[in-house]
Design a protein around this nucleic acid. Structure first.
Lengths: 221, 221
DNA sequence: CTACGGCACAAACCTACGTATAGCTCGCAC
DNA sequence: GTGCGAGCTATACGTAGGTTTGTGCCGTAG
């Protein structure tokens, strides 16, 4: 098996590190550091610049100076969150303070390093961040297929799905929706086919992954 | 309905704030602050002292000076984690640094406040921490019943449960375990009774909550 | 020894599930 | 209008799920 095959089967190859720093010498130093361990790098000099770029399609992380021209690193973090971009962020700072650190960590930063940054610390942080992003992407991918199949269901099929996944019997679903039992059975079969579920257990897990509310069926104490 | 009834129905009443600080005046000030908003308080002067006390049975949080006699606050945090005590921790510090902050937050601290601490900041942090603990306790409680019922299953019943929850048909389970189909059916019925599951959907969710590995049945892309 | 619980199976029986075939109405697009 | 898909139902048939009753083996606790 080739390296390429191994990568696509996991979660798309060639991780990339995105750097945002207004100091050219810092950008160069970081770029060299990451390239020395075989990581791809893309460097930006401002928050605005990276917001215009399209989000990467491979596992990646952001290395971000907290003090940036214009908006601060924390603002960029908030903007990315609002844009639904969840690339893990590693902050570096020359003279940050504790409240700033707390805010960044609470907002999901993976690390917060102080200058001068030890090379090994940075590489460890990037390693962890990319691994986290890879996991997030894998999870995202595994439900995106389910979600798109769910979109392909008709309104009635979704009604039936919700009740069936709640653990109701066909006849109960029928009563709930004012249908004949046979109708429910037929929809149920269509649902299984459209969703690609090979068993009821599959279907239940899909609905849970999609966050579909349950009408009945609880885990009681 | 009485207040008491309302509390027990949610997740046990009267939250409590645990304070660990070697400075008596600080303990007094924090105690007064929390009591002024109607919170129960218990104060300790050292890490060793609180480790001997039994963990509280109500939603609670820890307010912890990072510099303590003997072990540091971070050590106490690690010890509590090792002892499987997940009470949320709020650190306060007079002269902490950023690496210390990062380490504490990475280990799950909910906040990290610098002296002098603004009363409102402290109250907000405690409020959030207690809310988090309440949620954790609710989640814990909801699976503890399931877990104890699972303990009551025989070895064979657990084998069958794992395969049934994977979505296998009775005959497939039987083949997998080298049993007759009728035997699987009987175990299956016993499992449903013992686990208190009213439907297969229930059972699937219970096994997922318990983290029981699946032999077959995946959400494919 | 005896009692008990876990494990395993069988016959009989009933209910629930699932599909195929066929037919109906309604609304919408061409 | 004609065709199409969604929605709904019916008859019929086969398979899967589930319980009851009864049998037997084994190991262990009393």
């Amino acid at each position: 098996m080739t390296d390429h095959a191994k990568q696509t089967e996991a979660s798309a190859g060639e991780p990339i590190v995105l750097i945002v720093d207004d100091d050219p010498s810092m950008r160069r130093a970081l770029t060299n550091l990451f390239q020395s361990v075989g990581l791809k790098v893309q460097a930006f000099s401002s928050a605005a610049e990276i917001m215009e770029a399209k989000p990467p399609a491979v596992p990646s992380c952001l290395v971000l100076d907290i003090r940036l021209p214009g908006s601060s690193g924390l603002d960029l973090q908030a903007d990315l969150a609002k844009a639904n971009i969840h690339t893990p962020i590693i902050f570096i700072t020359g003279h940050g303070d504790i409240p700033m650190t707390v805010r960044a960590m609470k907002s999901g930063a993976v690390d917060f390093l102080t200058k001068p940054v030890r090379d090994q610390d940075m590489l460890d942080a990037v390693q962890a961040a990319i691994e986290r992003d890879r996991k997030r992407r894998d999870a995202e991918k595994s439900i995106s297929g389910v979600r798109s199949r769910f979109e392909g269901l008709t309104a009635r099929e979704r009604d039936v799905l919700a009740l069936v996944a709640s653990g109701l019997m066909n006849k109960q679903v029928a009563a709930e929706l004012g249908l004949a039992e046979i109708t429910v059975k037929i929809y149920r079969g269509q649902i299984m086919r459209k969703m690609g579920a090979k068993s009821l257990a599959d279907l239940v897990r899909m609905t849970d992954a999609l966050g579909i509310p349950r009408n009945r069926g609880h885990l009681q104490t």
